Amino acid sequence: MASPSDTTPQPHRRRAQLAQPAAKQGPGAMPPALLDALAIAVTQRVAGALPGDRRAAGVGAGTELAQIRPYAFGDDVRRIDAATTARTGEPHVRLEVPERTLTTWLALDVSSSMAFGTAARLKADVAEGVMLAIGRLALRHAGRVGIATFGDGDTRVQPPRGSKAGLVALRRTLNAGVARDGVADPHALADALGRVGRVARLPGLVVVVSDFRDQRDWARPLGVLRSRHAVLAVEVHDPREASIPPVGRIAVVDPETGRRVEVDTSRPRVREKFAAIEAERRETLASELRRLRVDHAALSTDEDWLLQLGRRLR
């Protein structure tokens, strides 16, 4: 696995301050039985996209011998096999089969729109639950977890870690919260997918958790990821985003940009137009994911998100 440090020049963006929303409720209970069912569903999805039994391509660091061959100029001297070299009188190198572990990349949207919620919990709470559930499943069988966060300015990528270190990094990321103020960047998702694609060299699982609102040009980098990895797109939404109740004149503030708009919700035409625009946006998203053959799970803040996720994957 190559180092996730990316030297590609990135445009400077203002970094938002992260904080936990005041109305945070948490992801709720995660019964072990549902987590086990989710583990089976995820394994079935991933198995069809990876070569063999989670075996990395080529040779690399491992414990199972692949071959012993004569030393060639440029070989790593640390791979010289002492016993064979002593027996033959010529330097030989030892090559192993890479370990059969799965690396899971979690891309989390931490933009301020994720702090919205009018039902049982916020969108950020649902996203936190998905991250914890998938992260625990990924670490269960000696796997590793890499994390990318976007939506608060520059994309931040953390290298894959296993065991306790991976879980600590995941919890630290979730405890940081979401962006307080609007940092409008319509290419944040595309940038994060591109960064993950450049550092995730070996086939694995990529899970994108976002509300996918006001994001552009993400289809191409997501398609590139899909050509090499198993990809799951988790869309988090709130029922109030699909319709406006007739409560008269209200002031609406876009959390991404801070723009303030006054609308008269008592007018049926306004409500119908809003519902039509939102329905078209979500259908366009679902259609694009189907075209890319990316698994799509839509989770709502007013339902059991873990049960929804398990049913969708199965």
Rank of each mutant, 00 (worst) to 15 (best):
D6V: 00
P160Q: 10
E303Y: 10
P91I: 02
T104W: 05
D185G: 06
A233Q: 01
A233R: 04
E283R: 15
R87N: 05
G248F: 11
D302S: 12
R269E: 15
Q17D: 15
D81C: 10
R311Q: 15
A49W: 01
P221A: 09
A188R: 09
T265L: 10
A192Y: 03
P160I: 02
V234R: 09
G162L: 00
T103F: 03
A19D: 15
V130P: 01
A82G: 04
E283C: 08
L167V: 01
L50T: 05
T173E: 15
L34N: 08
G129E: 13
A176T: 05
R54P: 01
E241L: 14
L225N: 12
S113Q: 08
A29M: 13
D125A: 13
G143V: 08
P246A: 10
S300F: 02
F150Q: 04
A142L: 07
D254H: 11
A56S: 03
P203I: 00
V110P: 03
D81K: 11
R78I: 13
V247S: 12
R55W: 06
A33L: 12
A39E: 10
W105V: 03
Q44L: 01
D254I: 12
I40M: 06
L289T: 06
S266A: 14
V77H: 07
A119C: 06
R259C: 06
Q10A: 09
S210H: 09
R171G: 04
R220C: 04
S113I: 02
A275G: 07
I147A: 07
S287E: 15
G58C: 13
R15K: 11
G48N: 04
R314N: 10
I68N: 06
H229L: 10
G26Y: 12
D152L: 08
L167E: 02
R195C: 08
T101R: 12
Q20P: 09
R311E: 14
A119Q: 09
A138W: 00
G89R: 08
N175W: 13
R121G: 00
R260M: 12
L205V: 04
G223L: 11
A39L: 11
G62P: 00
H141C: 00
A242P: 05
A286V: 11
V294R: 03
A19Y: 09
L108G: 05
T103S: 04
L225Q: 09
I68D: 07
